[in-house]
Design a binder for these strands. Structure first.
Lengths: 243, 243
DNA sequence: GCTAATCGTGACCTCAAGTCAGGCCATACA
DNA sequence: TGTATGGCCTGACTTGAGGTCACGATTAGC
C-alpha cells in the first residue's frame, strides 16, 4: 500500500523552507472534501478515483500524486471525518456536572439527531471500521489509539476522578469497553437508517430506542460503575467511597 | 455483486430432482477448502482467484461457475469456517453444570489454545467481520442472525432458565451484548498473535490474560447477571467474591 | 451405445488502480 | 523584467484482477 505511510518528501538539503505551499494544501483539502462525498455515497469499493477527479475537474494522476493510493486517500478522509466528531467531554456544562453516566446518556440520546444533521462523517467512520480491509483497519486502529479522537481516555479519567467508576479495573480495559460498546450501540442505532440489515435486529430498536438507552446505560453502570452505596447503611451516598 | 444472493438455479419446473450431483458437490468442497487456505494466508483483497484455481489445477472460470463471484466464494468460505466453531453449550458436562458464567469462562480461557490448534477459521472470521466490505458484511450479518452459529440464543436461554441472568433485560439485547463483547474480547486476544496492532494495546494483554479474563467475566456478570442475594445481611458481599 | 444435459476450459473482455515523461507555472533572484 | 528552478498537473499508458462465454469434454439416463 504505497503512500499511506508518509507522502511527504525528504527534507530540503539546504535552506529553502518549503513555505507551506498554500496552493497544495488547498488542493489537498478540496480533494479530501470531494472524496468524502464519493466514499460516503458509494462505499469504498464502488467509489472511483477517476470519478472524484472528474468531479473536481482535475486529472486522476493528480490525486495519486497527493495521496499515493486510494487507501491513502481514504485514510485522510477517515481521519478528517473522525476528527470532526465531538469529544465525550464536549457537552453543555450542566450535563458534565451531572457526571459520567449523564454525559454518556447525553451522547447516546443525541446520536440520532446528530446523524440526521450530517450523516456523512458517520458513514465514513462506518466504512473505516468495517468496510475496507485489514491492512487499512490496522492503520486506522493505530490512529485511533494515538489520537484518541473521541477523548475516551480523559472521559474515563473524569469518571474515575469523580469516583463514579470502579478503581479496581484496568483503565485500558474500561476505555476499550466504552469504545466498543458505544461504537456498536451507535452503529446499531444508526445503521437502522444508513444500512438496514447491517446489525442485529435493529427493526424494533427504533421504537424502543429510549428504553434501550436506559437499559444500556444501567448495564454499563453496573459493569464499570462504582456499586451503589445502599443496602448496608441507607443514605449518605458518595462521601465514603474508597481510594 | 452477482452471485452472492443466490447461486442456486430456479426450481425445476417438473420432476427432475437435481439429485445432489456428487461430482459437483465434491468439487465445490475442494474449491472452498483451497480458497479458505488462500484467504487466510493473504487476506481478502490479496487473495487471487486465479491462484486458487492454479493451486487446484483447474480453470479460473470453473470457480466463477460454481460461486458466481469472489464475494460469493468468500461467503461460502466464511460460512464453513464459522460453522466449524463449537457452540457455547458444547462444553464438558461438568462445566455446563456449573452454569452460565462458568461456560463463558471455559471458552474465554480456551480461546488461545483453540486458535493455536487451528488458526485458519479464526482468521477467516476476522476477515468477514472487518476485512471485506459493507455489502458482504450485511450478508454475513443476515447469516449470523438466521443461523446463530455460536448458539448464543440458546445459551442465553440456558442462563435465564437457571436464574443466572436478569429477567428485566431484553433477550435480544443480552444476545447482542454477549456476541459483541465476546467477539471483541477474543479478537483482542487473538489478534495479538495474528494481527499485531489491529486492536488496542494488546501488548500487555498477553501477560495479564488470566487477570483480564477474570475482570471481564466479573464485569459481564455485574452487567447482565442476577445481582448477588447478599448485601442485605451485613457485610461485604462483593469484595470476597473475587473468584 | 445414443442423447441431452451439465461441467470445464482458456482465450478474451472490461475496467479501475496506478505510473510517468513531459509541459506548465509560480516564485526567487539578478 | 528576464530567466532559472523546482514543484505541480496532465492524460495517455500499463498492469493486472475479476468476470464472461462459446465450445468441447464428460457424465447420466435410457
Amino acid at each position: 500500500m504505497p503512500g499511506i505511510a508518509s507522502n511527504r518528501v525528504a527534507p530540503p538539503l539546504y535552506q529553502r523552507q518549503p513555505r507551506v505551499r498554500p496552493r497544495s494544501e488547498a488542493k489537498r483539502a478540496r480533494i479530501v472534501e470531494a472524496a468524502t462525498q464519493h466514499f460516503a455515497e458509494h462505499g469504498y469499493h464502488d467509489a472511483r478515483v477517476g470519478d472524484i477527479a472528474t468531479a473536481l475537474g482535475i486529472a486522476k494522476g493528480s490525486i495519486f500524486q497527493h495521496f499515493g493510493s486510494k487507501d491513502g486517500l481514504f485514510f485522510e478522509v477517515y481521519k478528517r471525518a473522525v476528527r470532526s466528531f465531538s469529544k465525550y467531554l464536549d457537552v453543555p456544562a450542566e450535563v458534565r456536572q451531572e457526571g459520567f453516566f449523564a454525559v454518556l446518556r447525553y451522547w447516546l440520546a443525541s446520536t440520532e439527531h446528530l446523524v440526521h444533521e450530517d450523516w456523512i462523517p458517520y458513514r465514513i467512520s462506518l466504512l473505516g471500521n468495517y468496510g475496507t480491509d485489514l491492512v487499512l483497519k490496522r492503520e486506522i486502529n493505530r490512529f485511533l489509539i494515538s489520537e484518541d479522537p473521541y477523548g475516551t481516555v480523559s472521559f474515563v479519567r473524569f469518571g474515575l476522578e469523580r469516583g463514579e467508576l470502579r478503581d479496581d479495573l484496568d483503565i485500558e480495559m474500561m476505555v476499550s469497553i466504552i469504545d466498543w460498546m458505544v461504537e456498536r450501540f451507535q452503529d446499531a442505532l444508526l445503521t437502522a437508517e444508513l444500512d438496514p440489515g447491517l446489525f442485529r435486529r435493529q427493526g424494533e430498536l427504533a421504537e424502543k430506542k429510549e428504553a434501550r438507552i436506559q437499559q444500556f446505560l444501567a448495564m454499563l453502570q453496573r459493569a464499570i460503575g462504582v456499586p451503589p452505596p445502599a443496602a448496608v447503611s441507607r443514605q449518605k451516598s458518595r462521601s465514603n467511597h474508597r481510594r
